[in-house]
Amino acid sequence: MSTDTFLSAATRVIPSVEYRRERWRNGLGWTREILRVPDNDDWLVRLSIAEIEQDAAFSAFPGIERELVLLRGEGLRLRFADGTLHTLMPPHDRLRFAGEAEVSGELVDGVTHDFNLMWRRDAVSAELLHRPLVGSMFFFSEPGAAWAIHLLAGQAEFEGEPALPPLQAGDTAWLGAGPRRRYALHGGGELLAIRVAAGVAAG
């Protein structure tokens, strides 16, 4: 199957209560998986929330690009093997880095929850936007391009889309690739919007 076919996975809203929660292999935290496309071990895109309870090394993901966004907590230091140190601070600092990188997470002051976007760099490109939601925002699905929308705060609903239930804070919507279509998201709050497209980004 082509990348385009995988990105056309069914449009839907995923309530936060349906995220799959599992213990890390090293036992030092939890992951709540939101979505993987396709839904198997050979995914192209994966969204999850890491619950980091103590300082811990991150797992390596060869061939994967990652972007972390601090959701909750007082901060997370990311210490890389090359000596680079980057601290994610509230409210929503973020960092993109290669999945191959040797990195450990160090808590600034207590448990953190971190949004984790991962994508296979040789097959898709991804862009993560952090935006306020005031009134309506418009998202366009297209052939080879899909959107994932994670509501950080507030509430929202897709106008004229009775098959898509309203979003509460913490919920995620997937707008699958396909014929060009406009989605109007109406509400108030704050969100992460991730555009995922087939192919590798220029540059």
Score class of each variant (00 low, 15 high):
93 D>Q: 02
38 P>K: 08
100 E>T: 15
89 M>N: 12
123 A>P: 03
116 N>C: 10
124 V>R: 11
60 A>Y: 00
75 G>R: 09
60 A>S: 10
45 V>N: 03
84 T>V: 13
133 L>D: 04
102 E>N: 01
105 G>E: 02
70 L>N: 10
114 D>L: 04
42 D>C: 14
104 S>K: 03
88 L>D: 05
88 L>T: 08
65 E>T: 14
32 R>S: 12
109 D>Y: 08
77 R>M: 14
32 R>H: 09
46 R>A: 09
45 V>C: 10
35 L>G: 15
103 V>I: 08
70 L>R: 13
122 D>F: 01
130 H>E: 15
136 S>H: 08
91 P>F: 00
63 G>L: 04
101 A>L: 09
68 L>I: 05
72 R>A: 10
95 L>Y: 07
39 D>G: 06
48 S>Y: 00
47 L>W: 03
89 M>V: 11
79 R>Y: 13
44 L>H: 08
69 V>G: 10
38 P>V: 10
38 P>E: 07
98 A>Q: 07
134 V>E: 12
96 R>E: 00
60 A>P: 01
64 I>Q: 03
42 D>H: 09
49 I>A: 04
69 V>D: 06
135 G>F: 02
46 R>P: 03
41 D>R: 03
121 R>M: 04
76 L>D: 11
96 R>Q: 01
126 A>F: 05
133 L>Q: 12
73 G>F: 09
112 T>H: 04
128 L>V: 15
102 E>D: 14
45 V>D: 13
72 R>L: 12
52 I>E: 08
72 R>K: 15
37 V>C: 07
65 E>G: 05
114 D>R: 12
114 D>A: 01
69 V>A: 02
41 D>K: 08
50 A>Y: 00
128 L>I: 05
44 L>W: 07
39 D>F: 15
93 D>N: 13
130 H>T: 14
64 I>T: 02
40 N>K: 03
85 L>T: 15
58 F>D: 10
77 R>I: 11
106 E>I: 04
119 W>P: 04
137 M>N: 09
54 Q>H: 09
86 H>I: 10
38 P>A: 10
43 W>K: 01
74 E>V: 01
69 V>K: 02
132 P>F: 09
47 L>T: 13
79 R>D: 15
66 R>V: 00
105 G>Y: 06
36 R>L: 12
